[in-house]
Design a protein around this nucleic acid. Structure first.
Lengths: 155, 155
DNA sequence: GGAATCAGGACTAAAGTGGTCCTGTATGTC
DNA sequence: GACATACAGGACCACTTTAGTCCTGATTCC
Protein backbone atom coordinates (compact mmCIF):
# COMPACT_ATOMS: atom_id res chain seq x y z
CA UNK A 1 0.00 0.00 0.00
CA UNK A 2 2.95 2.33 -0.09
CA UNK A 3 2.26 3.24 3.47
CA UNK A 4 4.41 3.26 6.57
CA UNK A 5 3.52 0.74 9.25
CA UNK A 6 2.15 2.01 12.52
CA UNK A 7 5.33 1.09 14.33
CA UNK A 8 7.29 3.24 11.95
CA UNK A 9 4.87 6.06 12.49
CA UNK A 10 5.42 5.70 16.21
CA UNK A 11 9.13 5.61 15.55
CA UNK A 12 9.10 8.97 13.86
CA UNK A 13 7.05 10.45 16.65
CA UNK A 14 9.27 8.95 19.32
CA UNK A 15 12.43 10.17 17.64
CA UNK A 16 10.98 13.62 17.21
CA UNK A 17 10.10 13.64 20.87
CA UNK A 18 13.59 12.61 21.93
CA UNK A 19 15.08 15.15 19.57
CA UNK A 20 13.61 17.91 21.66
CA UNK A 21 16.08 17.04 24.41
CA UNK A 22 18.94 15.30 22.66
CA UNK A 23 21.09 14.84 25.74
CA UNK A 24 18.44 13.82 28.19
CA UNK A 25 17.85 10.16 28.96
CA UNK A 26 14.21 9.11 28.73
CA UNK A 27 12.82 5.89 30.18
CA UNK A 28 10.46 3.93 27.96
CA UNK A 29 7.61 4.63 30.34
CA UNK A 30 8.09 8.37 30.05
CA UNK A 31 8.21 8.20 26.29
CA UNK A 32 5.01 6.20 26.35
CA UNK A 33 3.25 8.83 28.39
CA UNK A 34 4.51 11.67 26.24
CA UNK A 35 3.56 10.02 22.98
CA UNK A 36 0.40 8.34 24.23
CA UNK A 37 1.48 4.96 22.94
CA UNK A 38 1.22 1.87 25.13
CA UNK A 39 4.40 1.02 27.00
CA UNK A 40 5.06 -2.45 25.49
CA UNK A 41 4.59 -1.06 22.03
CA UNK A 42 6.73 2.01 22.41
CA UNK A 43 9.29 -0.17 24.09
CA UNK A 44 9.43 -2.42 21.07
CA UNK A 45 10.06 0.57 18.86
CA UNK A 46 12.73 1.96 21.14
CA UNK A 47 14.57 -1.34 21.19
CA UNK A 48 14.68 -1.53 17.44
CA UNK A 49 15.85 2.03 17.10
CA UNK A 50 18.50 1.34 19.67
CA UNK A 51 19.74 -1.72 17.90
CA UNK A 52 19.99 0.27 14.73
CA UNK A 53 22.25 2.73 16.47
CA UNK A 54 19.90 5.67 16.19
CA UNK A 55 19.42 5.62 19.95
CA UNK A 56 21.80 4.96 22.80
CA UNK A 57 20.36 2.97 25.65
CA UNK A 58 21.31 2.78 29.31
CA UNK A 59 20.22 -0.11 31.45
CA UNK A 60 19.38 -0.31 35.08
CA UNK A 61 17.80 2.18 37.34
CA UNK A 62 17.91 5.68 35.90
CA UNK A 63 18.36 4.06 32.55
CA UNK A 64 16.59 4.93 29.35
CA UNK A 65 17.22 6.16 25.84
CA UNK A 66 18.64 9.22 24.14
CA UNK A 67 19.58 10.07 20.59
CA UNK A 68 22.68 8.43 19.19
CA UNK A 69 23.65 11.62 17.40
CA UNK A 70 22.38 15.13 16.90
CA UNK A 71 18.88 15.59 15.50
CA UNK A 72 20.24 17.20 12.34
CA UNK A 73 22.26 14.08 11.63
CA UNK A 74 19.30 11.70 11.73
CA UNK A 75 16.98 11.57 8.77
CA UNK A 76 13.48 10.26 8.47
CA UNK A 77 14.76 7.77 5.93
CA UNK A 78 17.15 6.35 8.50
CA UNK A 79 14.36 5.86 10.98
CA UNK A 80 12.34 4.04 8.35
CA UNK A 81 15.32 1.91 7.44
CA UNK A 82 15.80 1.01 11.07
CA UNK A 83 12.23 -0.10 11.56
CA UNK A 84 11.34 -1.58 8.21
CA UNK A 85 14.60 -2.86 6.87
CA UNK A 86 15.89 -2.39 3.34
CA UNK A 87 14.16 0.47 1.63
CA UNK A 88 12.38 -0.98 -1.39
CA UNK A 89 9.25 0.42 -2.95
CA UNK A 90 8.59 -2.74 -4.88
CA UNK A 91 9.32 -6.37 -4.26
CA UNK A 92 9.47 -9.39 -6.46
CA UNK A 93 6.13 -11.09 -6.56
CA UNK A 94 6.77 -14.79 -6.62
CA UNK A 95 10.18 -15.06 -5.07
CA UNK A 96 12.26 -16.59 -7.75
CA UNK A 97 9.28 -16.92 -10.03
CA UNK A 98 8.85 -14.14 -12.51
CA UNK A 99 11.82 -12.48 -11.01
CA UNK A 100 14.11 -14.95 -12.61
CA UNK A 101 13.32 -12.77 -15.59
CA UNK A 102 15.01 -9.77 -14.15
CA UNK A 103 17.29 -9.41 -17.09
CA UNK A 104 14.31 -9.20 -19.41
CA UNK A 105 12.33 -6.76 -17.39
CA UNK A 106 12.09 -3.37 -18.93
CA UNK A 107 10.77 -1.62 -15.89
CA UNK A 108 13.49 -2.56 -13.45
CA UNK A 109 15.86 0.26 -14.25
CA UNK A 110 13.10 2.79 -13.90
CA UNK A 111 11.98 1.44 -10.57
CA UNK A 112 15.48 1.81 -9.31
CA UNK A 113 15.43 5.44 -10.29
CA UNK A 114 12.03 6.03 -8.76
CA UNK A 115 12.98 4.21 -5.60
CA UNK A 116 16.04 6.34 -5.29
CA UNK A 117 14.08 9.52 -5.76
CA UNK A 118 11.65 8.59 -3.03
CA UNK A 119 14.49 7.68 -0.74
CA UNK A 120 16.13 11.03 -1.23
CA UNK A 121 12.89 12.78 -0.47
CA UNK A 122 12.84 11.03 2.88
CA UNK A 123 16.54 11.37 3.48
CA UNK A 124 16.30 15.11 3.05
CA UNK A 125 14.25 15.58 6.18
CA UNK A 126 16.06 15.42 9.50
CA UNK A 127 14.73 15.20 13.02
CA UNK A 128 15.86 18.77 13.46
CA UNK A 129 13.47 19.71 10.69
CA UNK A 130 10.70 17.78 12.35
CA UNK A 131 11.24 19.50 15.66
CA UNK A 132 11.05 22.90 14.05
CA UNK A 133 7.40 22.18 13.35
CA UNK A 134 4.53 24.48 14.22
CA UNK A 135 3.49 23.79 17.75
CA UNK A 136 5.84 23.04 20.60
CA UNK A 137 3.29 20.83 22.23
CA UNK A 138 3.42 17.14 22.78
CA UNK A 139 4.18 15.07 19.74
CA UNK A 140 1.52 12.51 19.08
CA UNK A 141 1.28 10.02 16.25
CA UNK A 142 -0.94 11.36 13.62
CA UNK A 143 -1.04 11.00 9.93
CA UNK A 144 -3.99 10.18 7.78
CA UNK A 145 -2.61 12.68 5.40
CA UNK A 146 -4.18 12.51 2.01
CA UNK A 147 -2.39 14.75 -0.35
CA UNK A 148 -4.87 14.39 -3.08
CA UNK A 149 -8.37 13.09 -3.16
CA UNK A 150 -8.18 9.64 -4.57
CA UNK A 151 -8.23 10.15 -8.26
CA UNK A 152 -10.61 7.19 -8.08
CA UNK A 153 -12.51 6.81 -11.31
CA UNK A 154 -15.21 9.00 -12.55
CA UNK A 155 -17.94 6.62 -11.70
CA UNK B 1 6.13 -1.21 4.93
CA UNK B 2 6.25 1.64 2.48
CA UNK B 3 6.01 -0.83 -0.32
CA UNK B 4 3.70 -1.14 -3.28
CA UNK B 5 1.33 -4.09 -3.24
CA UNK B 6 1.82 -6.82 -5.79
CA UNK B 7 -1.30 -5.79 -7.64
CA UNK B 8 0.11 -2.32 -8.06
CA UNK B 9 3.35 -3.77 -9.28
CA UNK B 10 1.38 -5.75 -11.82
CA UNK B 11 -0.50 -2.61 -12.70
CA UNK B 12 2.65 -0.75 -13.61
CA UNK B 13 3.85 -3.65 -15.70
CA UNK B 14 0.51 -4.01 -17.43
CA UNK B 15 0.28 -0.32 -18.19
CA UNK B 16 3.81 -0.28 -19.50
CA UNK B 17 2.97 -3.20 -21.73
CA UNK B 18 -0.14 -1.51 -23.11
CA UNK B 19 1.81 1.70 -23.59
CA UNK B 20 3.89 -0.03 -26.20
CA UNK B 21 0.85 -0.11 -28.48
CA UNK B 22 -1.38 2.70 -27.25
CA UNK B 23 -4.05 2.28 -29.89
CA UNK B 24 -4.25 -1.48 -29.96
CA UNK B 25 -6.94 -3.28 -28.01
CA UNK B 26 -5.64 -6.10 -25.85
CA UNK B 27 -7.81 -8.83 -24.34
CA UNK B 28 -7.13 -9.71 -20.72
CA UNK B 29 -5.91 -13.11 -21.75
CA UNK B 30 -3.30 -11.68 -24.05
CA UNK B 31 -2.08 -9.30 -21.39
CA UNK B 32 -1.81 -12.21 -18.99
CA UNK B 33 0.36 -14.13 -21.38
CA UNK B 34 2.57 -11.16 -22.14
CA UNK B 35 3.10 -10.27 -18.51
CA UNK B 36 3.13 -13.79 -17.16
CA UNK B 37 0.50 -13.03 -14.58
CA UNK B 38 -2.49 -15.33 -14.08
CA UNK B 39 -5.59 -14.33 -16.01
CA UNK B 40 -7.96 -13.75 -13.06
CA UNK B 41 -5.37 -11.62 -11.36
CA UNK B 42 -4.41 -9.51 -14.31
CA UNK B 43 -8.09 -9.18 -15.06
CA UNK B 44 -8.70 -7.75 -11.62
CA UNK B 45 -6.00 -5.19 -12.20
CA UNK B 46 -7.30 -4.27 -15.62
CA UNK B 47 -10.79 -3.74 -14.29
CA UNK B 48 -9.59 -1.38 -11.62
CA UNK B 49 -7.47 0.58 -14.03
CA UNK B 50 -10.40 0.80 -16.37
CA UNK B 51 -12.72 2.07 -13.70
CA UNK B 52 -10.19 4.72 -12.82
CA UNK B 53 -10.26 5.92 -16.40
CA UNK B 54 -6.67 5.04 -17.16
CA UNK B 55 -7.83 2.35 -19.55
CA UNK B 56 -10.71 2.20 -21.98
CA UNK B 57 -12.47 -1.14 -22.19
CA UNK B 58 -14.51 -2.73 -24.94
CA UNK B 59 -16.84 -5.59 -24.22
CA UNK B 60 -17.87 -8.51 -26.29
CA UNK B 61 -16.01 -10.47 -28.83
CA UNK B 62 -12.94 -8.63 -30.06
CA UNK B 63 -13.13 -6.64 -26.86
CA UNK B 64 -10.30 -5.76 -24.55
CA UNK B 65 -8.42 -2.81 -23.14
CA UNK B 66 -6.31 0.04 -24.39
CA UNK B 67 -4.86 3.16 -22.80
CA UNK B 68 -7.27 5.94 -21.97
CA UNK B 69 -4.78 8.56 -23.06
CA UNK B 70 -1.28 8.77 -24.43
CA UNK B 71 1.55 7.16 -22.44
CA UNK B 72 3.16 10.52 -21.77
CA UNK B 73 -0.02 11.68 -20.09
CA UNK B 74 -0.20 8.83 -17.59
CA UNK B 75 2.10 8.91 -14.60
CA UNK B 76 3.17 6.16 -12.28
CA UNK B 77 1.54 8.07 -9.45
CA UNK B 78 -1.79 7.91 -11.23
CA UNK B 79 -1.52 4.17 -11.61
CA UNK B 80 -0.78 3.86 -7.91
CA UNK B 81 -3.68 6.11 -7.06
CA UNK B 82 -5.98 4.00 -9.21
CA UNK B 83 -4.99 0.76 -7.54
CA UNK B 84 -4.35 1.80 -3.97
CA UNK B 85 -6.63 4.72 -3.43
CA UNK B 86 -5.71 7.97 -1.75
CA UNK B 87 -1.99 8.45 -1.68
CA UNK B 88 -0.98 8.63 1.97
CA UNK B 89 2.38 7.61 3.33
CA UNK B 90 1.13 7.51 6.87
CA UNK B 91 -2.20 6.76 8.45
CA UNK B 92 -3.72 7.49 11.76
CA UNK B 93 -3.04 4.69 14.17
CA UNK B 94 -6.07 4.30 16.34
CA UNK B 95 -8.80 5.69 14.16
CA UNK B 96 -10.13 8.58 16.10
CA UNK B 97 -7.93 7.79 19.05
CA UNK B 98 -4.71 9.67 19.17
CA UNK B 99 -5.64 11.33 15.96
CA UNK B 100 -8.17 13.46 17.70
CA UNK B 101 -5.01 15.26 18.69
CA UNK B 102 -4.24 16.34 15.21
CA UNK B 103 -4.19 19.96 16.13
CA UNK B 104 -1.51 19.29 18.71
CA UNK B 105 0.64 17.12 16.59
CA UNK B 106 3.89 18.71 15.65
CA UNK B 107 4.80 16.26 12.96
CA UNK B 108 1.69 16.51 10.84
CA UNK B 109 2.77 19.47 8.76
CA UNK B 110 6.06 17.84 7.98
CA UNK B 111 4.44 14.61 6.94
CA UNK B 112 2.30 16.52 4.55
CA UNK B 113 5.38 18.00 2.99
CA UNK B 114 7.16 14.67 2.82
CA UNK B 115 4.11 12.96 1.41
CA UNK B 116 3.87 15.60 -1.25
CA UNK B 117 7.50 15.21 -2.18
CA UNK B 118 7.16 11.50 -2.59
CA UNK B 119 4.07 11.96 -4.68
CA UNK B 120 5.83 14.33 -7.02
CA UNK B 121 8.66 11.89 -7.44
CA UNK B 122 6.16 9.34 -8.66
CA UNK B 123 4.13 11.81 -10.66
CA UNK B 124 7.20 12.81 -12.57
CA UNK B 125 7.55 9.47 -14.28
CA UNK B 126 5.19 8.72 -17.16
CA UNK B 127 4.48 5.49 -18.95
CA UNK B 128 6.34 6.95 -21.89
CA UNK B 129 9.40 7.12 -19.66
CA UNK B 130 8.87 3.54 -18.58
CA UNK B 131 8.63 2.32 -22.15
CA UNK B 132 11.86 4.01 -23.08
CA UNK B 133 13.60 1.54 -20.80
CA UNK B 134 16.56 -0.64 -21.77
CA UNK B 135 15.28 -3.76 -23.42
CA UNK B 136 12.36 -3.96 -25.79
CA UNK B 137 11.57 -7.40 -24.61
CA UNK B 138 8.52 -8.53 -22.74
CA UNK B 139 7.73 -6.61 -19.64
CA UNK B 140 7.54 -8.81 -16.60
CA UNK B 141 6.86 -7.81 -13.03
CA UNK B 142 10.07 -7.54 -11.19
CA UNK B 143 11.29 -5.35 -8.47
CA UNK B 144 13.07 -6.42 -5.38
CA UNK B 145 15.02 -3.28 -5.72
CA UNK B 146 17.01 -2.43 -2.68
CA UNK B 147 18.58 0.93 -3.06
CA UNK B 148 20.70 0.65 -0.03
CA UNK B 149 21.68 -2.27 2.12
CA UNK B 150 19.51 -2.08 5.15
CA UNK B 151 21.28 0.30 7.36
CA UNK B 152 20.37 -2.34 9.96
CA UNK B 153 22.30 -1.68 13.12
CA UNK B 154 25.86 -2.42 13.89
CA UNK B 155 24.78 -5.00 16.34
C1' DG C 1 19.89 -6.90 48.12
C1' DG C 2 16.31 -4.95 45.78
C1' DA C 3 14.13 -1.98 42.57
C1' DA C 4 14.26 -0.17 38.10
C1' DT C 5 15.07 -0.62 33.32
C1' DC C 6 16.64 -2.42 28.95
C1' DA C 7 17.44 -6.94 25.67
C1' DG C 8 15.55 -10.36 23.08
C1' DG C 9 12.35 -13.11 21.55
C1' DA C 10 7.87 -15.87 21.64
C1' DC C 11 3.20 -15.64 21.02
C1' DT C 12 -1.72 -14.34 19.66
C1' DA C 13 -5.36 -11.83 17.54
C1' DA C 14 -6.58 -8.89 13.94
C1' DA C 15 -6.10 -6.92 9.58
C1' DG C 16 -4.67 -6.88 4.94
C1' DT C 17 -3.47 -9.03 0.53
C1' DG C 18 -3.42 -12.07 -3.29
C1' DG C 19 -5.72 -14.86 -5.95
C1' DT C 20 -9.79 -17.30 -7.69
C1' DC C 21 -14.42 -17.83 -9.07
C1' DC C 22 -19.30 -16.87 -10.07
C1' DT C 23 -23.06 -14.34 -12.10
C1' DG C 24 -24.44 -10.83 -15.16
C1' DT C 25 -24.08 -7.84 -19.33
C1' DA C 26 -22.48 -6.26 -23.75
C1' DT C 27 -20.74 -7.12 -28.48
C1' DG C 28 -19.27 -9.33 -32.73
C1' DT C 29 -19.90 -13.38 -35.90
C1' DC C 30 -22.27 -16.81 -38.36
C1' DG D 1 -31.30 -14.81 -33.58
C1' DA D 2 -28.09 -18.00 -31.33
C1' DC D 3 -23.76 -18.39 -29.64
C1' DA D 4 -19.14 -17.54 -28.36
C1' DT D 5 -16.23 -14.07 -26.51
C1' DA D 6 -14.91 -10.76 -23.26
C1' DC D 7 -15.58 -7.26 -19.70
C1' DA D 8 -18.17 -5.71 -14.92
C1' DG D 9 -18.68 -6.33 -10.34
C1' DG D 10 -18.40 -8.43 -6.38
C1' DA D 11 -18.03 -12.51 -3.09
C1' DC D 12 -15.02 -15.51 -1.10
C1' DC D 13 -11.06 -18.04 1.01
C1' DA D 14 -6.23 -18.94 2.25
C1' DC D 15 -2.29 -16.94 3.45
C1' DT D 16 0.79 -13.49 5.15
C1' DT D 17 1.80 -9.57 7.68
C1' DT D 18 1.26 -6.51 11.50
C1' DA D 19 0.25 -4.80 16.05
C1' DG D 20 0.41 -5.49 20.42
C1' DT D 21 1.45 -8.02 24.64
C1' DC D 22 4.12 -10.73 27.68
C1' DC D 23 7.86 -13.47 29.63
C1' DT D 24 12.52 -14.43 30.95
C1' DG D 25 16.98 -12.68 31.35
C1' DA D 26 20.85 -9.13 32.11
C1' DT D 27 22.45 -4.75 33.85
C1' DT D 28 22.80 -0.70 36.82
C1' DC D 29 21.82 2.43 40.66
C1' DC D 30 20.82 3.20 45.51
Amino acid sequence: MLKLSKLTDYGIVVMTHLAQEPYQVHAAGDVAVATRVAVPTVSKVLKRLSRAGLLVSARGSKGGYRLGRMPAAISVAQVIDALEGPFAITECASDGGSCSQESHCAVRANWQRINDTVWHALAGVSLADMVMAPAGESVVPVSAITVRPARRASR
